[in-house]
Write a protein that binds this DNA or RNA. Structure first.
Lengths: 208, 208, 208, 208
DNA sequence: TATGAATGAGACTTCATTCAT
DNA sequence: GATGAATGAAGTCTCATTCAT
């Protein structure tokens, strides 16, 4: 029987990471003080600097590590299906569902990741690109399978899908989780993106 | 005849606003120093405080006033058409086109507006909602005209459209304006949103 | 008639410099807090950073500017004489006399200049070398005039002269200005260095 | 029979002391971190506090103990001679020679001892005075033997001798041990101090 | 109005020291 | 004795804002 939690250090590091998510998500990166994160983690200010080089480094570590978990999980979920449309649906549903379990994390990723390029010289959000790559993969497969339009740039399309989900996430979060419930909007996103705005019988010519 | 531009003060105020757009868009709100904006405007630091109560206030004024111009312009452009699909196309094209003429402004609106809720207690981006309302209006009209799906929540749909455009704007900006040229992606957005991902002949049943 | 002291800024900068000399000389560079220097100057902490880039920079500025004044004054004093021995005497007397008027400054120069090489990457105390060069010049002249030994490395000799003076300065300062009064020790230094330890009649052979 | 070196603790204490000399000499007292000394000693940070009360205490212990060794050695060397001039020569040569074997130690003693009075309230460098006392003794003897000038304050003279040596040590160290080789400068110091700057035939009157 | 030197609160970060193991 | 993770006091520096001119 171990005298102490063998995971002790990792434990503390993780507590800091979790507290950072909480605090960053509520006040934003610049609005958050290192001492607040320390207090929220139940450690001393200096302890944070044992595990992270700087406040910036803490944010980046948070991006990388949490995104990694999300990427792994998303890959697993998507691969439960074979049909590209099913995969797309799974991607969208899973993305929106994260909002419920990991609201703070998503909030940080959304807002801070976006502005990070402004103040962090040469930080490339590698894991975020991996997350988008899953989406590209699905769209490619769909095109190859003849299910998706061929006249569609995959890199643009994936951004459209992602942007739509992302905007709804943000709206849900900013509305203090009152409106646009993720599980509802997920299917709206899928429907609209899969089949377009147009009414089934509406004519298709003249545009595009 | 006045010796100096009677619009001098307004002129100076505007110079500050323009400089703020430039500086904020390059370094982000928190990365920008008031003195940098002063230098870029060609005024003294203190002068900024004659026209704006605080740095926060400067950002808000920028949001409101510039968004107002954009809203007015967008209304004009959209009202050149009567068919809701044409209006939607105009909205998307115009939105993406702003990226070319007013890149800095859009960048600020995108990134800073999003995080502003974190550090500005009770600021409601009224003008931004007006901008979205134009989109809602188009979608409502489309539904009424029987052109758009009826099984579609307008508030959700407008966010999907906006999110898609927004993500592509961001990508264009972050790629240093190299990839995803707005005028090209505008039609991709319209195509995909109007008609969906699905290939024309692909079966529609089983999903949704 | 100027409404304000035209020398105002220079005045404030100088007040900071003087306060820094005072504080550094009493507590050493590392023992001195920027806020103490601010208080001693009668300015706010931040004001120091208007005139100096950093605490290190303040020390360097102090070295350079004050040493420059000293070098100029020393050159003037030494050039009142033509005989190298007289010049040497003037150099030594003047050096020791500085201790009375500019005790704090000398103390800072002595102690901090010496350790500065440890913590300031690549700072070369140019002005200090100029000060030593005056001494070299005197010794060179003395050799050329046949007054000083020819079997003497000038660069080593100047360090011997300087080191002797310097050690006495330090001792005087560390004794809280009680013993080894500069004006007395100046002539001891001159006598000993000019004529050596040896008693006038003592035999000279057998050694060296 | 003990399983481990009975001198183990003393050994560890000494390793810390040696490491401290190395680290202090390279970075200065304030530039050195306790953890660096720990690493250099191959012990844990906390271990240092078993042997020394504080970082200050470590420096003082280093002064006292190492100076003690030097004093003992110097006394032995000097006492190999009986003639005060020979003793003086031995003192100077030995002092300069230390630079080769114990460069780091001398560097610490020189720079840090000097500034220690600034930050260590009431620390008296007893051993350093003993070192100087050896020099006083030699000069006294020389005066008594009629070999050295009688019109010479011993306490001042010893500082002159010490200062000259000290300055050359410093120069040698700061030049990264390239110029002013100790064994060469030692004899220059002796010559100049024993017989003065003046050329053998140069007139002696008018000055002093 | 305009200026810009001055202010000073407060942030990030360091590191000597402690103490449970 | 030995360890080294944790602590938290304290310092340097920044920068939004003010105000006398």
């Amino acid at each position: 029987m171990p005298k102490k939690d063998p995971d002790y250090a990792g434990n503390k590091r993780n507590r800091i990471l979790q507290a950072a998510i909480e605090v960053f998500s509520q006040k934003g990166f610049f609005g958050s003080k290192v001492s607040e994160i320390a207090r929220a983690s139940g450690v001393a200010d200096g302890t944070i600097y044992i595990y992270f080089k700087s406040k910036d480094d803490l944010l980046i570590a948070l991006f990388e590590e949490k995104m990694d978990e999300i990427v792994v999980e998303m890959r697993r979920k998507v691969n439960e299906y074979t049909n590209p449309l099913d995969k797309l649906k799974a991607y969208i549903e899973n993305h929106m569902k994260l909002l419920e379990g990991e609201a703070g994390l998503i909030e940080v990723l959304q807002v801070e990741l976006r502005q990070s390029s402004k103040f962090m010289k040469d930080y490339t959000p590698v894991k975020f690109f991996e997350y988008l790559d899953i989406l590209s993969g699905i769209i490619e497969e769909g095109k190859e399978a003849g299910l998706f339009r061929l006249d569609m740039n995959v890199r643009v399309a994936r951004r459209i899908v992602f942007g739509a989900m992302d905007e709804l996430s943000r709206t849900y979060i900013l509305s203090k989780r009152k409106n646009y419930h993720p599980s509802v909007t997920a299917s709206e996103v899928f429907n609209l993106l899969a089949d377009g705005l147009r009414a089934p019988g509406a004519e298709n010519s003249g545009h595009v």
